[in-house]
Every structure is written in C-alpha cells, then in structure tokens.
C-alpha cells in the first residue's frame, strides 16, 4: 500500500511536469526523516505526525517544482531528469550530513502489537498503513475526479498551452501537483519508516519501484500505476517469502528488462493524452 502511495505521487508529478522526477524517492526518505525528527525530538505521537509530514513534504514538493521543474519547461525532458537527479543527490547528502548515514526507525503510527479480528491476528501497524493508504488514495481520486481543482490539474497535464488559453494559471497548478506528490511521498516514507527504517540511500530504490510501476501500468495512467504498484508489492512479498529479498528484486528487474524488450511502448502503449 505504501508503494501505491509512492507510485501515485510519482505519476501525478510525472503528468504535471511532463518528465520523470528522479527526486521522488528521496522525498519519501525525507518524509521518513521528518517523522523520525518530529517523533523523537518533539515526542509527537504517530498519528499527529501525518499532518506534520504531509505539510513539510508538500512544501518540499513545491520547492522542487520551483527550482528544478518549472524553470526547465522549455527544455528537453533530459534537462529535467538531470535537474531532479541533482535534487535527489542534494536531499540524500543533506540527510547524510544532518542525520548521519545509519538507518533510523520512524515512530509507529498507532503503537505496536496486534488486533484480533475475526480470529485473525493482524499487526496494528500494517492495518494502520492499509487504512491510511486506502483513505489517501480515495481522497486523491476524489480530488482529481470530483473537484474543480482536480479537473484543472488534469487539464494542465493534458495540454499546458490550452489550459492557459482557458485561463488556468498552469505554473501554479504544476507546483500544486508537485506539492501533492511530495505530501504523498512523505506519508509513504512515514509509513515505511517504522518497519523498514529510514536511511538516506533508500531514495533510488523507492524511485525505481515507482518508475517500474508507471512503466508497467501504462505511462501516465493513474489507476494503472496504482495497480502495478500493488502488484509489485505482492510479487515482492511472495517471492521474497519463498526465495529471499535478493531474488525477488532480481526477478523484478529482469522482468522489467524483458518486458521492455518485448513491448518497447509499455503495457498499454502511450495513453491518448500524449497524442494531443
């Protein structure tokens, strides 16, 4: 479910910016780090961290849009790639300098232990992740599909020029999309940070999985990315339960290479939005 949040933010940023945001994984890590700092130094309980992380990382996403994405709007996508890779490195090394390279544990959301539900023992943390993740995905869906702001964000993603021609301040909406993506990444970082700890070097791995999910789910497709992210999560869980983590990751990467060799245009081809 946390993968789904990462992939969701990744695809939102991708659609708005028109280019891959390589710093997305490091925003996830940054979210975890904020949770660690706020949880330990301020002693905030897990649930109270949610808004703190969301607001901080939303601001980080906004800054990312302002410094690395909007100024490069007129340049080829490779320029944005490099700028966001640099941004990713800034976050990673900034965290290393600030917090050290050793992994840290983020506070859990609602304490540890498990609940008895219908005879099944469920961990409280996984359950909380599931609930928070589900709520956020639903909220984003509602925003995009049922509100004026969401419609306009989609219009900007679809055709930036035309969106301006109907009066939408496109730059502001792109920054907004990136802020939303950042908030989702940060919350994912908070959710993952308890079980898998937070280390500055994890960013590339998070980004790669979101990238894979978007490529498998159909470039730019929000539901496709969500489904693919959940699929990757299940796949990893099962393969690593049987064969170990390394084999699970290896199988995933080989699978992606094979997939791209067979279908260079992605699973569903490019969505219609890119034809316009």
């Amino acid at each position: 479910m946390a993968y789904a949040l990462i992939a969701l933010g990744f695809v939102l940023a991708l659609n708005a910016a028109g280019a891959v945001n390589f710093a997305h994984g490091d925003l996830v890590v940054l979210g975890g780090a904020v949770a660690v700092v706020a949880g330990v130094s301020l002693g905030l309980p897990g649930l109270a961290l949610l808004p703190v992380v969301a607001v901080t990382l939303g601001a980080a996403g906004f800054v990312a849009a302002r410094v690395a994405i909007l100024p490069l709007a007129g340049r080829p996508p490779e320029a944005t790639f490099v700028a966001t890779i640099a941004l990713a490195a800034i976050v990673e090394h900034g965290l290393t300098v600030g917090l050290g390279a050793a992994p840290l544990a983020a506070p859990s959301l609602v304490g540890s232990g498990s609940l008895e539900v219908g005879g099944l023992a469920l961990g409280r943390q996984p359950l909380a992740i599931l609930l928070v993740g589900g709520a956020l995905v639903t909220a984003v869906w509602f925003l995009l599909e049922r509100t004026q702001t969401g419609r306009r964000m989609r219009a900007v993603s679809s055709d930036r020029y035309m969106a301006r021609a109907i009066g939408i301040p496109a730059a502001r909406y792109i920054a907004l999309s990136l802020a939303l993506a950042g908030a989702l990444a940060g919350i994912a970082g908070l959710l993952l940070g308890h079980q898998f700890l937070v280390a500055p070097t994890q960013g590339a791995g998070h980004m790669l999985k979101a990238y894979i999910a978007v490529a498998l789910g159909g470039w730019g497709s929000v539901p496709g990315a969500l489904l693919a992210a959940l699929g990757i999560g299940f796949f990893e869980t099962f393969v690593s339960a049987g064969l170990g983590d390394a084999w699970a990751s290896a199988a995933l990467y080989v699978g992606v290479l094979a997939f791209l060799a067979v279908r260079p245009q992605g699973l569903f081809g490019e969505p219609a939005g890119r034809r316009a």
């Binding site: 791209l260 060799a261 260079p264």
Partner: peptide, 19 residues
C-alpha cells in the same frame, strides 16, 4: 532491445540493469 526505447523507458531500462 534497450536502445530502441524512448527516453523515459531508456532511462528505466538502464537503471534496472544497473540495479
């Protein structure tokens, strides 16, 4: 196979290879 890909898939494929 990798070099036929468009820029964003090319980046992904080389990244997967590196991983």
């Amino acid at each position: 196979p990798v070099l036929r890909l468009q820029s964003h898939y090319f980046a992904l494929a080389t990244l997967a290879l590196a991983s």
